[in-house]
Structure formats: C-alpha cells, structure tokens
C-alpha cells in the first residue's frame, strides 16, 4: 500500500496546505487532557499543538497509549480538554458547554470508529438516515443516494449490521459519518477490525472522499501503511505530537 509517497519537512506541508486555505479548520493550542482517579492524575495529552486545513487528510500515528484516541475525542467534542484550546471551524470547544459541543458534533463532525458502532436494531438505510435525522435538516434523498452509491451500499441498505461483513459495516459507518456533510471526519482506527482487503477498500474510500468531495479527514492509526493514505502524517508520543509529515 501507499508506495508512491514522498517525505516532506512538516513546514513544507503546512505551506502547501496554507496555499489551499488560509484558516485551519482545526487548531489545537497547548492542549492538555488530564484524567483524575482519586489522587492519581494521568496526563493523556501534554500540550498538543496542531493544525488541520480544509481538504486535508491527516493521519495521526503513534504507539498504544500515546493519547491518539483521547485527542480524537477532545477535538471531536466528545470529551472536554483540561487546558489549552481547540478551535474547530472557528469555535473554541474548550469554552463551550456540553450542549453546545453536542450541537457542534451534530453539524460539523462525523465519527468513524474501529468497532463500526452501528445500531444493531436498524438496517443500513436507517443507520445512515439516523445521522440526517439527528442533524435536524430532514431527510435529503439526493445526498443519501450520492453517498450510498459512492460507498457501494445501494444493494445492502435493507440489511442489518449482523447481516453485513466487517468491510460493509465500516462503509455504512462511513456513510453515516459523511451523509450530513460535516466539516471534518474523525476516524479512530477505522481499519483496526478489518482484514487487509477490506482495510484497503475502506482506506481507498476515505482517500476518494477526500479527493473527490474535498472532505477533511483526521484518521488515527497505528498502521504505517494505513497512515500513508493520508496526505500528511503526524506522529504522537507520550501525549504530544512529535514530528513527521508525509504528503502524496
């Protein structure tokens, strides 16, 4: 996978990205997340600074426990930061109430999880439509059709998750994430539960979404091959972004 990649210094990548858009869609400044358990404090994020520009496909790599998932939760508004700032499409998540972050997730963020997290009682059609329903702008059949066709789900919409393969389930999850046209898609190890073939298919789709629709994507992975699908790779270690950028 990803044989045709070139390594650039991170400053060059940022320059390229900035040429496409002046303002980052996502920006963190000295972002900290500390978990407390009694008197014990564990810092999962230790002053993360990063920027993601519209239309980018950023992969975040790092060993287990380095804070990748925590960062995804914080930048997606699922968890509150302890210190620092998270600016998502101009909104500072760290000063927002829980209800305001809920609204922000609804309108600007699409999540894709390692375990797919589809509702088992609903078929693929309703799992995807649910996102539009929660979004609140009503069902958009045109957008739905475009997304279902793009992800090759047209023939599988009446099936429940238990009747779909892992790859198909992840495609449904991907469709659910993008059907409401979020500003950014946050994918947490989207290929972690898939075999190689299905992984490649899902990663190809992510890249296609990025290229064809200009969808901004931040993907967490510990797999270098998967990370190479992004046009920039950030490396994390011990709760910090340490280095590294890869651009196609």
């Amino acid at each position: 996978m990803a044989n045709a990649t070139r390594i650039f210094p991170s400053s060059e990548v940022l320059t390229l990205a900035r040429e496409r858009a002046l303002e980052p869609i996502l920006k963190t400044e000295n972002l900290w997340k500390v978990y407390r358990s009694g008197k014990l404090e564990v810092a999962a994020l230790r002053g993360v600074n990063m920027e993601v520009f519209p239309g980018e496909f950023v992969s975040i790599m790092g060993p287990s426990g380095c804070g990748k998932s925590t960062m995804l939760h914080v930048i997606g508004g699922l968890a509150q930061a302890t210190r620092g700032r998270v600016l998502l499409d101009g909104n500072d998540l760290t000063t927002m109430t829980d209800a305001a972050r809920t609204l922000l997730r609804r309108h600007k963020v699409g999540f894709v999880f390692q375990k797919f997290n589809l509702l088992p009682t609903l078929d693929a059609y309703h799992n995807i439509a649910l996102a539009q329903h929660i979004h609140g702008n009503g069902f958009d059949p045109h957008r739905f059709e475009v997304v279902a066709n793009l992800l090759g789900l047209s023939g599988r919409l009446t099936h429940k998750p238990s009747e779909l393969s892992g790859g198909e389930q992840q495609r449904v999850a991907l469709a659910r994430a993008i059907v409401s046209e979020p500003k950014i898609v946050l994918a947490d190890e989207p290929t972690g539960n898939l075999d190689t073939k299905s992984s490649e298919a899902v990663l190809d789709l992510l890249r296609q979404l990025n290229k064809d629709l200009g969808q901004t994507i931040v993907m967490i992975t510990h797999n270098p091959d998967a990370a190479a699908y992004g046009n920039r790779v950030l490396h994390m270690r011990d709760g910090q972004v340490v280095d590294g950028s890869t651009v196609h």
Binding site: G76, L78, A99, T102, L103, L104, R105, R106, H107, V109, F111, F113, N117, L118, L119, P120, L130, A131, I134, H135, R176
Partner: peptide
Amino acid sequence: TREIGVLKSLGASKSY
C-alpha cells in the same frame, strides 16, 4: 450504553 454513546457522537441531545 454503547448505542447511547453512538447517538451522542452523532450529536443527539439529552432531550433526544
């Protein structure tokens, strides 16, 4: 519980 988490990740409010 997990389904409730999924709904919340999609932006479902408490009242929803």
